[in-house]
Computed example of a mutant assay.
Amino acid sequence: METSTDTQKSKLKTWATTIFVCAFLFVWLSGMTAGMMAGACRKDHYEGAQKLRFCNISLAAGAWMKFSTLERAKGSRIELERGIALSQLGKVEQAVEAFEEALRNARAKPGPWEQQLHRRMVHMEDSNMLALWVSVVEAAN
């Protein structure tokens, strides 16, 4: 026969297991969602509203990872792609804000992050978008 102490320990163990499983699922699902949407966001196959949707989902799902400067630096590419999508939609002010955020995030951690953003923008065929990027970089320096 179980005592009340054994019953309390069993309930505590059940709750602890439940909390652990829920936390794991949250981290895993949000990470998978952010990663899959980031992959779609980075592709030039998608443009405008569809690209913006993928970028926004990726940024929202991965928002909890922004505590780390490394994660912010890695995520700078998604913010840049978001700016590209906004520019394609003619939302110039929002695109500039996204480019500024991308540049800030890339500079949060030393590494190749900012150079990767520059390389991406140099390959853009849209000269207006490139001019927006250059204006953001010049204003930040």
Rank of each mutant, 00 (worst) to 15 (best):
S30H: 14
A106D: 03
S135E: 15
G39I: 01
V122I: 14
R104Y: 12
N105G: 04
A23E: 00
E101Q: 13
V134I: 15
L12R: 03
I57G: 04
K43A: 15
T69G: 09
E81T: 00
A16F: 06
V92W: 01
A131G: 03
M36Y: 14
E81N: 09
F54V: 00
R120S: 05
G83V: 09
Q94T: 12
T14R: 10
M32L: 10
K51Q: 08
Q116D: 13
M124K: 11
M36K: 09
F67T: 11
E97K: 14
A38D: 12
L29N: 10
F26R: 01
I19Q: 04
R104G: 01
L25R: 01
V134Q: 15
R82H: 15
A38Y: 12
R104V: 11
E2N: 08
L59S: 05
A106T: 12
G35C: 02
R104C: 01
A38K: 12
G90Q: 13
V96Q: 14
L70Q: 15
F99A: 02
V137E: 13
L52P: 02
T7H: 06
Q8G: 00
W133T: 08
W113F: 11
Q8M: 03
R77K: 15
C55F: 03
S87P: 03
I57M: 10
D44C: 07
L117H: 10
K109R: 15
W113M: 07
S4V: 11
D126A: 03
Q50W: 04
A140G: 02
S58L: 07
S76D: 14
H45F: 12
F24G: 03
W113R: 01
I57Q: 06
T7A: 07
R53K: 08
A85V: 12
P110D: 15
Y46N: 05
E93V: 14
W64A: 04
G90L: 15
L12K: 04
C22T: 09
S76V: 12
H45A: 13
G83E: 05
I57N: 08
R104D: 13
E101T: 14
Q8H: 00
T17R: 05
L103E: 14
F24V: 10
L70T: 14
L29Y: 13
M1P: 01
T69Y: 12
F20L: 13
M37F: 13
R119K: 07
R42T: 09
T3A: 00
K109S: 15
L80Q: 02
V96M: 07
E2P: 11
A140E: 07
A60P: 00
L130A: 12
I84Q: 08
F54R: 02
Q88F: 03
E79A: 15
Q50L: 11
M121H: 02
I57C: 05
N141Q: 11
R107N: 10
A40V: 02
S30R: 10
A40S: 11
